[in-house]
Design a protein around this nucleic acid. Structure first.
Ligand SMILES: [Mn+2]
Ligand SMILES: [Mn+2]
Ligand SMILES: [Zn+2]
Ligand SMILES: [Zn+2]
Lengths: 149, 149
DNA sequence: CATGGTATGGAAAACGAGTTTCATTTTCAT
DNA sequence: ATGAAAATGAAACTCGTTTTCCATACCATG
């Protein structure tokens, strides 16, 4: 997974400047590697670090980090675009477990669905290059709390 | 799969009226069972049948048909909400093959991913209730055309 | 140091899909 | 036919996101 230094290098390669605002947003993204933040959530956290940061700068920086491959959009179908860091080590998209109780979103690192790709090809003549899975249900924590009640 | 008569009955059950506008929109949906139309595409086709139909009526009717279980949202991650008819015979959501060349969207009727649900539970303690799969690649027709060239 | 050109950032305006409002029209049970 | 309730279309409004505009910061030169 990329660290702050490597991302700074990437910016420099593209001859973008590492401004205070970009640094603040980058820190927020790094400190929330396991989360799937929305632009609004990033703006809120950024304003805490530096109240003089503008929403447009945050949106622009999100676009910029997308372009240089630091973050990626995740569609969780709640009408809001969310983002997670890209791990250059992952060859394939990872998938998501979405808790219907607390709304928490977890990553599924192992690709347990890969073996089905040639089954899809045999049945449909469709050559699979990629797939995304969203799995809905109840997370461990929430099912323990339900048991408890 | 529901037919026009059954949907008319359902409307009556809920004491909604079958107006000319609703009939026009229903016909469009029935004539495009295998497609995944957006609101805008429905508006365009509806205006061809009756130029005096308003966009807000189409949006309202889409909401209505969702509520009475005629259609359902499909998220194809193109930022636009799309809809497909609900087949009351399917117990589970079906999945989608999305061609990266022509953009065509096909249904995968068989649920080949079901057997993985308890594997997810064992690994993550996450109780799966539902899952959606989007499979990207190249459809049969497009790969034949590519071969040909 | 100036000088000028380019990149950046913030405020505000614009955008676009979708929703709501409201005055008017249509429907349908009586 | 009548009137209450439901439905309609145009326009206004949301709300997340993008673009525009302009002042300021940065940076390589003379
Ligand atoms: Mn993720
Ligand atoms: Mn479908
Ligand atoms: Zn939970
Ligand atoms: Zn194709």
């Amino acid at each position: 997974m990329l660290n702050a230094y490597q991302i700074g290098e990437t910016l420099r390669e593209y001859s973008y400047k590492m401004t205070l605002q970009r640094k603040a947003i980058l820190d927020i993204i790094l400190q929330n590697r396991d989360k799937h933040l929305s632009a609004e959530e990033i703006i809120e956290k950024a304003k805490k670090k530096n109240p003089r940061i503008g929403a447009s700068t945050v949106y622009r920086t999100i676009r910029l980090f997308e372009k240089i491959g630091v973050i990626q959009q995740v569609f969780l179908n709640d009408g809001i675009m969310r983002y997670h860091m890209i791990n250059p080590d992952e060859k394939r998209e990872h998938h998501h477990l979405i808790c219907k109780v607390c709304g928490d979103v977890m990553d599924v690192k192992e690709d347990i669905f890969e073996i089905f790709e040639d089954q899809i090809f045999r049945k449909n003549g469709f050559t699979v290059t990629d797939h995304r899975v969203k799995i809905y249900g109840i997370c461990k924590k929430c099912s323990e709390e339900i048991e408890y009640v």
